[in-house]
Write a protein that binds this DNA or RNA. Structure first.
Lengths: 345, 345
DNA sequence: CTGAAAGCGCTTACAG
DNA sequence: CTGAAAGCGCTTACAG
């Protein structure tokens, strides 16, 4: 069954290929009755244009690449994917996934040079890759960065971000207001820029309140983020630092593991120890107890990223833009005031 | 900067286009020194083949389509995506995501007819769509089904599945052995075939143990699955049926919500009420308490699906195959024996 | 408002 | 082992 081509449509409608192409692309200069005839022919023949032919001849991939870290099934990443996927489709673009764990900077740049994609959206950790950064800039590849690691590295790119430092300063401040003075902190992957900035915000809040920063209360390793890291590090914190009344997790997954560690030790959350997270993910309202956390609008961020990228693809001269989105403290049940008699436990 | 083409490589290596094409495609009949020269020329020029040109001229999309339900950030789906993504790349294929919520059966069939994909992997709910099913079969589109809703609907397709009914029979049996007699059941989306089969397995186990099936203890609505459904339905169950000592969730997300409902009512898990889930997801070891559940190997299932699909794409005459994968009961801490004095609570 | 020609960068089918 | 020709199904650039 040979596929129906634009030629077949042209023949049936009694017009040239170019005219069919015009109606396909919604170009204005077509007479109404011609338009009708072509549309009728398309419908009769059940015509579907060949996407590869279009892309080859037009030189446009009509595809954006999204470079993600693993595991994609972490809530943060899969939510970003969903949002970017939907937004790009809404705007007539396809969507292609890349993982630097799988393929490396070279392969990604090749995807662009081979015409597979028109541009990229980077998030950490890909935005931190020096090689990728360099190649992208050298080749003038359009791209936008979500949560950039230092604007200087991505001068030509647009940015979408939240203020991680300020956000964590705020949630720490919230705990301080509640009366906490002895904090533990469990970072997610400590190489990631967001995590570094969040830790900074924590220190800042401490500093502002005149509370000494204790390095031995900070757990910050460079490991892939999964809830069990929060569990392991939380356990260590509880053993090493019994005076702690509140623990801040670098994200919700970590916080969930920390809660597990506390509960397993026979202590209660928040009665004995308060815990807060960051992100406000799919499960955060359903943890036991429900998590007090900082909402990061990752879905909106991905939407903005797609829009900014398309802007740059369609007008390479347009100026890079920076969009800073607001976060929001979501108070649930995992944090409360510390008990008076700390040492009861 | 015009892209380097196969023509440029041929010119520099002093051979014909066809020969360059041969080395590109690893065809055997090339002399060693020719091979070297061509490779050298490719390297010198930093040549990247144009993927659309290849696909247009070869007539192969080298792409598989994966049709998923929303939300993709549910653990089950995002894990399937990750696994299918990796496996298809490993085999030299691209990977394209489709969502029937977004686009409908027509669009999906068009993607095939337009040459964008060589075949599809369906999971529920897409495998339940009659229109899609019919079109796929009429056009002889290669596809494979994960967890099919009745084999008869997909006679030409290969299948990858687990035995949901038997698995839930087993986990119910486990609870019965523990001493439970009064069960509650909260289904996830009750239209999904897996959920229907799980409920069947539950009834079967009850029947085998001579325990009456009580319809009023079953919560099974047709709604999208999110943890908060488990919470809402769990609450109703607790109010309406105080004699219940164990609740089975249609999946882990639901179970998580059920636990939340129990805890919020001031009861304990598992001391007052046992809860079990299904899937064994990313967070199940970190819930409070950690969830006893049935492990579904969705990552392996996706791998098998890719393999079976590629088999069919490359040899349309090959027979449909059925692969049944094993599940495994994962005993953690959310289920235990019921207390003697039920009404103490 | 419409069309004829050339071309996008590859592969196919055939020949030698 | 290698190549010349034709073609995949569109769009571009130009002309009228």
């Amino acid at each position: 069954m040979a596929p129906i081509t634009l030629n077949d449509v042209a023949a049936r409608a009694g017009v040239s290929k170019k005219t069919v192409s015009r109606v396909l692309n919604n170009e204005p200069a077509v007479a109404d009755d011609t338009l009708d005839r072509v549309r009728q022919a398309m419908a009769d023949l059940n015509y579907v244009p060949n996407i590869f032919a279009r892309r080859l001849s037009s030189g446009k991939a009509m595809t954006i690449g999204v470079i993600v870290g693993w595991p994609i099934f972490s809530h943060y990443i899969s939510k970003m994917i969903e949002s970017a996927f939907k937004e790009s489709h809404r705007r007539g673009y396809s969507f292609s996934l890349f993982s630097m764990d799988d393929v490396g900077a070279d392969h990604i740049v090749e995807a662009y040079r081979g015409g597979q994609v028109d541009g990229f959206i980077l998030d950490t950790p890909s935005s931190m890759d020096r090689n990728l950064q360099k190649s992208l800039n050298t080749l003038h590849v359009p791209y936008v960065v979500i949560n950039p690691n230092g604007r200087a590295n991505h001068l030509r790119a647009s940015h979408v971000e939240i203020d991680d430092e300020e956000a964590t300063r705020e949630i720490t401040h919230y705990l301080i207001e509640l009366g906490h003075r002895d904090f533990g902190y469990v970072s997610a992957n400590a190489q990631i820029i967001q995590q570094i900035n969040r830790l900074k915000g924590f220190r800042k809040a401490l500093h502002e309140a005149g509370i000494p920063y204790r390095k031995d209360h900070i757990m910050a390793e460079a490991r892939i983020t999964v809830p069990v890291i929060g569990f392991d590090q939380g356990k260590r914190l509880l053993e090493d630092c019994p005076e702690i009344t509140a623990i801040i997790g670098g994200n919700d997954d970590i916080a969930m593991g920390v809660i597990r560690a506390i509960l397993q030790k026979g202590l209660r959350v928040p009665d004995d120890i308060s815990v807060v997270g960051f992100d406000d993910n799919y499960y955060s309202a359903m943890t036991a107890p429900p998590l007090t956390t900082m909402h990061q609008p990752i879905d909106e961020m991905a939407c903005h990223a797609v829009q900014l990228l398309l802007q740059r693809i369609n007008d390479p001269t347009c100026k890079p833009e920076r969009r800073l989105l607001a976060v929001e403290l979501v108070v649930r049940e995992s944090a409360t005031s510390p008990r008076r008699e700390k040492n009861l436990r």
